[in-house]
Nucleic acid binder design. Sequence first.
DNA 1: ATGTGC
Length: 485
Amino acid sequence: MTVPSELRRIADTVWELPRSYKPGMLVPARIFATEKLIRAMDSGVFDQVSNVACLPGIQKYAFCMPDGHWGYGFPIGGLAAMDPETGVISPGGIGFDINCGMRLVLTNLTYDEVQPRLRDLVDALFYRVPAGVGCHGFVRLSHDEFCAVAEQGSRWALKNGYAWPEDLELTEEGGCFAGADAAKISHRAIDRGFNQIGTLGSGNHYLEIQVARPENIYDQELARAFGITVPNQVVVMFHCGSRGFGHQVATDYLQLFLSVMEKKYGIHTNDRELACAPFRSREGQDYFAAMKCAVNMAFANRQVILHRIREVFADIFAKDPRELGMEMVYDVAHNTAKLENHVVDGMKRELLVHRKGATRAFGPGMEGIPDRYRESGQPVIIGGSMETGSYLLAGMRGGSETFFTTAHGSGRTMSRHQAKRLVKGQKLQRDMELRGIYVRTASWGGLAEEAGAAYKDIDDVAEATERSNLSRRVVRLVPIGNVKG
DNA sequence: ATGTGC
């Protein structure tokens, strides 16, 4: 790959494109990466992150995280904080899969206890948590009930017996973005979403059984604070979002924004995929309220999936999920926009923070994280490929430059098409089983697309976030079982 | 990502 000649190395892992790189840039663009990662960086990232730097109201820098790669308008791994009074909101800065996110759940079981039942466990999870394109969940809802889910998120799940009370506290924003308004979502979006609660979806969405091996613990004290206390402890991690519902919300508002952006608001962008509207406009506020519905649907979706996971473990191990210690570590979103208070040039200000394939990573002592993590900082969950591993990390005190934001995953290095040409799903499943990872999938092609070879090295990404003071490594988690969408 | 695409 070629790196632009204008790219300057600001610090060990900080790379900058100055405003002179492209006409119209209001702020410089900054990319966090090791030298190895910057050399391998998708060239689309430089173009896209500098386009984002031209958007009205952007503050300080347009950022890209170490796992960055080409996306719709904004890079995936993109971070842009806007002044809410003068700035815009852009669906491309949030992603089609609104509130795509990660959830990590503990057990008190060890690898030796789980291994003999691994096939039964993964088979049962595959059966009980629907995966794949167009899959439907077991929760039966009317359209009106679905609107309640969209407005209440995990609170709906708690009222309906799908959550433990502490699950909400262990979810970003308590599992509900305030201000969601179902009057701002289309009938079509409701129609696509009302039977998708409790489903995993497809693409890079997955549910994984993982092990915390003693040699993979980076910080003993933080690991203990996050509930990793037993050698070879088994945990469950999963990755999914708002399914067709969020996709339809994004599609509806992209269309609306394209029709008003230039004609009504006189905003010109370098790329129509950067469609946006002033945050304080009627259209901007309507999208914000609709986006929150999709955020809340995704929280409820992950909560119902957790309920099913607890049921499966209870069946297989013939114990109550409480006895099995199936508490959440945390649930973090990585595709959102949110109003947050940050210190900019020494002044406390409210900003509209777009995170697309980027994870909030609040440091110790900050408001908005659970009391039990006050000392440790917010747990951060970065999902790797199903073959390699994932990381549990912690937010750091020094994260203010990026408005306390870090990476979200490995980031692709190979297109889906390319991966499918090189890898065959059935063979990959057999190879993985020989390496001790039992995988079930809704689609062989889909499995091939998610091969480890198609992704950046998760160890490089996690290391780059730590060297950039974005998040601190706590434990590397290795997969032993996987349900793939 | 997505009842996968003009």
